[in-house]
């Protein structure tokens, strides 16, 4: 069917779009504009906010304390995205080249976590990583084994195993975020790789290229749209992550969303929380704008 301009069939257009438009207006744009207005206000009572047009909240948001937390959030999100990309690419490749029989099951394995509540998934991971968790038990078992081996060969045994602190630090936050966001990276990568004509890979091999060169010169450039899409939908939610740093992080691993939450709840400073929120939103806008400015190269799967 040829593409139709909405003006050619306005009744049909409005019939289909009125509900989602109204929905977005009522439940997204209206509340967001309130928050936006609050960001220019100040607290005058316990529950009263006066919208005075002041820029004090934004001025405060640019204090180093908050900027540093913001930059740290960005660094954590970027690290999570890179790890997701490095781990996700081989997974997406494996999905693409899996046999017809296996692929649906592998895809199910990727999708399954989506059907489980984030809170439950996070607690499950925490149980695994705790000082009494399986990760530590396995490490301890390996440690004991190594110690036993040393004794076996007539050497001094290793000192007694001390459980490693795997939770409540930055490592735990990154691990948790990678765990949560990996499917977001794998799916767009898979969809880009799946569209790739497999004979391009064979042609590269046929012309003498090894697998690594084929990956770098043919597969990667052509999968770029999938990489960009995967990076965007991993980076943005990771930047605004709240639950994972809250539950798995330590005192020094709070991210910007945790700070915002504190303003709205414990500090009861809605105007400042609103200002911080909008700084975060503007940052995301910039990221999205940068991505759309990027000129798509020829030949990429659209």
């Amino acid at each position: 069917m040829a593409e139709q301009h909405w003006k050619e069939n306005p009744k049909g257009f409005w019939a289909v779009s009125a509900t989602p438009l109204l929905w977005t207006l009522l439940f997204f744009l209206v509340p967001m504009s309130f928050v936006w207005l609050y960001s220019f206000g100040s607290n005058v009572g316990l529950t009263e906010i006066e919208i005075s047009g002041t820029l004090d909240n934004y001025k405060r948001a640019t204090e180093w304390l908050y900027v540093s937390i913001f930059l740290k959030s960005l660094a954590v999100a970027a690290l999570v995205t890179v790890i997701c990309l490095v781990v996700g690419f081989p997974v997406a490749m494996a999905l693409t080249f899996a046999s017809e029989k296996w692929r649906p099951w592998l895809l199910l394995g990727i999708m399954l976590p989506f059907w489980t509540n984030l809170l439950i998934r996070t607690y499950a991971l925490m149980m695994l990583l705790g000082t009494q968790g399986y990760a530590n038990k396995t490490l301890g078992w390996l440690w004991d084994g190594a110690s036993w081996l040393k004794v076996f060969f007539g050497m001094q045994p290793l000192p007694t195993w001390e459980p490693v602190q795997l939770l409540y630090n930055n490592f735990a936050v990154v691990l948790g975020l990678v765990y949560v966001h990996l499917p977001f990276m794998v799916l767009p990568l898979y969809s880009a790789l799946d569209r790739l004509d497999k004979s391009l890979i064979e042609a590269s091999l046929d012309l003498g290229a090894g697998h690594l060169r084929t990956l770098m010169k043919v597969v990667m450039p052509l999968a770029m749209p999938g990489v960009i899409a995967g990076v965007m939908i991993t980076l943005i939610p990771a930047l605004g992550a709240y639950l994972t740093p809250d539950l798995m992080g330590g005192t020094d691993s709070q991210m910007i969303a945790n700070v915002i939450e504190r303003q709205f709840k414990r500090a009861n400073d809605w105007p400042f929380g609103a200002a911080l929120s909008f700084v975060l939103i503007y940052a995301m806008f910039i990221l999205i704008a940068l991505q759309s400015l990027r000129k798509p190269r020829r030949g990429e799967a659209k």
Binding site: S199, L200, A203
Partner: peptide, 8 residues
């Protein structure tokens, strides 16, 4: 058969 000319 599909020529497999590198599009990029």
């Amino acid at each position: 058969q599909s020529y497999a000319v590198f599009p990029h």
